[in-house]
């Protein structure tokens, strides 16, 4: 939730666990035992590493992820806001804490064409509802927001899950 670019150190064991579980846990009687067996590791070690990765933020959470579209959330708009630099941290936290917002980031402005520096994904049952929620956010922010837009997706052109190996530079440091 806070700014955090110093990735924790991961070793080969962590990377094996990441690769084995990145697409999900087995739906067996003892999921962690089965992950350990597949990797040839002790289950106690696997569970300890998973807990450590939860604590360090490498694992955000473990559980089920509902398909929001199936649950009736068909309106998903990317709202983008022009917020004064001095206000961005406070406004980001406020907007991120709203129930209808799933992702909220500060991103760099792109010159005069794109003054927007706060991005918030807003979910609703349909487009109208998203528009109404964004209008409410605008009203709540008052003079703190200097302009906004909502970009609705009209087509998914590609959607493959992230497949990272945990072998990035920060991760590799520990292997040396």
């Amino acid at each position: 939730m806070t700014k955090q670019f110093d990735a924790p150190q991961l070793d080969d064991t962590d990377r094996m666990i990441i690769q084995e579980t990145q697409t999900g846990l087995p739906l067996t009687a003892q999921p962690y035992h089965d992950v350990a067996a597949r990797l040839g590791l002790e289950v106690a070690l696997v569970m300890a590493r998973i807990k450590a990765m939860q604590a360090s933020g490498v694992i955000r959470r473990i559980g089920v992820v509902p398909n929001h579209y199936k649950l009736g959330y068909r309106g998903n708009g990317m709202s983008v806001w022009d917020i004064a630099d001095a206000d961005i941290a406070a406004v980001g936290k406020t907007v991120g804490a709203l129930d209808c917002v799933s992702h909220c980031y500060h991103r760099p402005r792109q010159g005069a064409d794109w003054p927007y520096n706060l991005f918030a994904m807003v979910h609703g049952h349909n487009r109208d509802e998203v528009e109404a929620k964004v209008a409410e956010i605008a009203e709540q922010l008052g003079a703190l927001q200097r302009g906004y837009r909502i970009l609705f997706s009209t087509r998914i052109l590609k959607k493959t899950g992230l497949r990272l190996t945990g072998t990035g530079p920060a991760a590799k440091r520990s292997a040396a």
């Binding site: 955090q4 990145q22 999900g24 694992i59 959470r61 473990i62 199936k70 990272l164 945990g166």
Partner: peptide, 15 residues
């Protein structure tokens, strides 16, 4: 109804 079950990794935290 569910799109996945398991750990959700934080990409930047993985390097």
């Amino acid at each position: 109804v569910l799109s996945r079950f398991g750990p959700l990794y934080h990409a930047e935290q993985m390097g």
